[in-house]
């Protein structure tokens, strides 16, 4: 009895540590993102600690709730968004370690959890009673529905392939970590896996509402869209949630495609140095994925229209994803 209580306590403690780290690195990466994009655009950009200042300032500010808004939903939506993003963090392997709440089928759980922050945004939009927010919420919903299919398809394809080849339990991040996809496939399969990776990289800006897929917030069209009425603490929660979500989402891609650790390669056996080396290596991997899918895309493209974005996800991404799936299957058959 005492032992299980003790391990529960450790788990809760670890959970809090992971959340704190998630928030910290989420905001840090946001700062790096802003600085680097600014440099790409020929600007100086804000200091890297700017997101921390933003959050601390927002927390001090008054939260204004519009008269016509559905008050409880308006206040609940940011909490739900942050909760969704936080729970997501617990199911994703971070810093080269297995996920805190790992267990059978955690990949499936993660796929469902990914919807919660997006749904919270939709709720926020509809509850704030502004026409801009309403249009933003509609767009967020359309985007969500459009990228969901290619997202699920690519994740499931990888998990299924690994499970099939190795005979280990599929839909587990630990299985993928033990048997990275690149080691299990032949030349045809590698092309398929690359295509699936591309699809996922393309979905990340959509999930995070970043240019070119920031239709739901579209500053010049909807003046901030779903979040137009949010201010103060409520807005700070969304701000933090988005940063946490960015880390979690990129960690999923890293967990699916690059679950390698550095410590075995360079031969560090001791537990603590190995943990530190793997943690830093994880942060580097996250940075690289973010750099390609968020920063470069943001600097190099214009915002799509909602119908164009929908077509890109629903038709182009799905077709590419299907092709990847078929290639993986052919790889199995051969």
């Amino acid at each position: 009895m005492i032992g299980s209580n003790f391990s529960l306590g450790i788990t809760i403690l670890l959970g809090i540590v992971i959340l704190a780290l998630g928030v910290f690195f989420g905001l840090l990466y946001l700062g790096i993102d802003r600085k680097l994009v600014a440099r790409m655009q020929g600007r100086i950009g804000p200091p890297i600690r700017q997101p921390f200042r933003d959050v601390s300032k927002l927390l001090m500010k008054e939260s204004i709730i519009p008269d016509d808004a559905i008050s409880w939903l308006f206040k609940f939506a940011p909490v739900l968004c942050l909760m969704g993003a936080a729970v997501l963090l617990l199911y994703v392997p971070l810093f080269g370690q297995p996920a805190l709440l790992e267990g059978s089928g955690d990949i499936i759980v993660v796929l469902y959890l990914l919807i919660i922050p997006a749904l919270a945004l939709v709720l926020a939009g509809f509850s704030s009673s502004s026409p801009f927010a309403t249009v933003g919420a509609q767009r967020e919903m359309v985007t969500l529905m459009s990228y969901e299919f290619p997202l699920v398809m690519s994740v499931v394809a990888i998990a299924w392939h690994t499970g099939h080849v190795t005979g280990a339990s599929p839909f587990l991040f630990s299985t993928l970590a033990a048997f990275p996809i690149w080691g299990q496939v032949g030349p045809v399969g590698i092309i398929g896996a690359v295509l699936l990776l591309l699809v996922l990289l393309f979905i990340i800006p959509g999930e995070l509402s970043k240019i070119p897929f920031d239709m739901a917030e579209a500053e010049t069209e909807l003046a901030g869209g779903v979040l137009v009425e949010y201010s103060g603490r409520n807005f700070a929660l969304f701000y933090v949630a988005n940063a946490v979500k960015a880390i979690a989402l990129v960690a999923i891609v890293v967990g699916l495609f690059f679950p390698y650790n550095l410590s075995p390669v360079i031969g560090i056996g001791a537990a603590i140095p190995a943990t530190i080396v793997d943690g830093i290596f994880f942060l580097v991997k996250v940075f690289l994925v973010m750099f390609v899918s968020v920063m470069v895309a943001r600097a190099a493209m214009a915002r799509f229209k909602i119908d164009q974005a929908s077509k890109i996800y629903f038709i182009s991404s799905t077709l590419v994803g299907l092709l990847g799936l078929i290639l993986l299957w052919i790889d199995l058959v051969i």
Binding site: Q41, G42, E219
Partner: peptide, 16 residues
């Protein structure tokens, strides 16, 4: 115009 379609890189470039 570039800013209106969310293409800020071009916006900064042109103004430079």
């Amino acid at each position: 115009a570039a800013h209106e379609i969310g293409f800020d890189s071009v916006f900064y470039l042109v103004w430079k």
